[in-house]
């Protein structure tokens, strides 16, 4: 960073389309966590979606167009942070490949990619946050969303911060690292298979004995919450940022 050491880092929040549309409180939790850690946070208005639905449908041209707009909207920030391992993974791991051999854009995409972080790992690994000042009585279990875990190496970071929430105990479920069956458009294109996968996941969640399910990706959370609610479970489902930011006044995802 070429700024004076004292200047607070300027973070561009990539809200993600699901958080923007379905669960704004996750966005505000992210803002609070980063502001508490000394960042200046902005949410550029020119953002929409990271382009993953197009990218994973094989539509490279449109993905590139969205990627260019996203890079342009965010390249002035010191960091680009998303409350999602999946979207952050797309921005960080896949954008550069979209512009391979495309001269200036390849460089811009790489420079952009270097600044991208998923929220929780940004707090712990970049900002050095080791604990949060949140309080919540309960038993939580944590699901590792696939892209965050395997593309970005997010595993210990959220567990560490969850461990610092006063009153909250972590109950590990079996196969926490196995996909929940969401997979973006997969869950509607192959809904029956997706259902079989999420049924195994909810069985593991229930068996953990936890009364709250946490994860770092809203897509997965909506899938698991939707299944748990359909099964009549009263396990509360929340994005991990809500709990860490002590912002649990909103009803949980999918209601009580």
């Amino acid at each position: 960073m070429n700024k004076a050491a004292s200047a607070p880092p300027r973070v561009g929040l990539f809200v993600t389309c699901l958080v923007d549309l379905f669960r704004p409180s996750v966005g505000f939790a992210a803002v609070k966590l980063m502001e508490d850690a000394g960042c200046v946070v902005e949410a550029p208005a020119a953002q929409t979606c990271c382009g993953q639905p197009a990218y994973n449908s094989g539509d490279r041209d449109d993905t590139r167009k969205i990627a260019k707009a996203t890079i342009e909207a965010f390249e002035d920030y010191d960091y680009v942070v998303a409350p999602s391992g999946s979207c952050a993974g797309t921005l960080k791991k896949h954008y550069p490949g979209l512009f391979k051999g495309d001269g200036a854009w390849e460089e811009r995409a790489q420079a952009f990619s270097d600044k991208v972080h998923e929220l929780i790992s940004f707090l712990t690994d970049t900002l050095g946050v080791t604990k949060v000042s949140a309080e919540l009585t309960g038993k939580a279990t944590y699901h590792d969303s696939c892209s965050g875990l395997r593309e970005l190496g997010i595993h210990d970071q959220p567990r560490k911060l969850i461990g610092s929430v006063k009153g909250l105990k972590l109950f590990e479920m079996d196969e926490a690292d196995v996909c929940c069956g969401f997979g973006g458009t997969f869950c509607v294109k192959y809904s029956e298979i997706s259902n079989a996968i999420v049924e195994k996941k909810t069985a593991n969640i229930v068996a953990s004995g936890a009364d709250m399910l946490l994860a770092g990706d809203l897509g997965c959370l909506m899938n698991m919450a939707g299944k748990l609610k359909r099964q009549g479970s009263d396990i509360e489902v929340r994005h991990v940022a809500e709990v860490l930011a002590d912002m649990t006044d909103q009803p949980p995802i999918g209601g009580k």
Binding site: S191, A225, R230
Partner: peptide, 30 residues
């Protein structure tokens, strides 16, 4: 705070509820 039925979301609501959006979008509130 959820849907059991929703047109155009058959693949989803056939097997699971769809959590409802909170209301105004993040960008709106921001």
């Amino acid at each position: 705070r959820r849907f059991r039925f929703l047109p155009f979301a058959g693949g989803w609501v056939r097997y699971r509820d769809l959590p409802a959006p909170e209301g105004r979008t993040f960008m709106q509130q921001w």
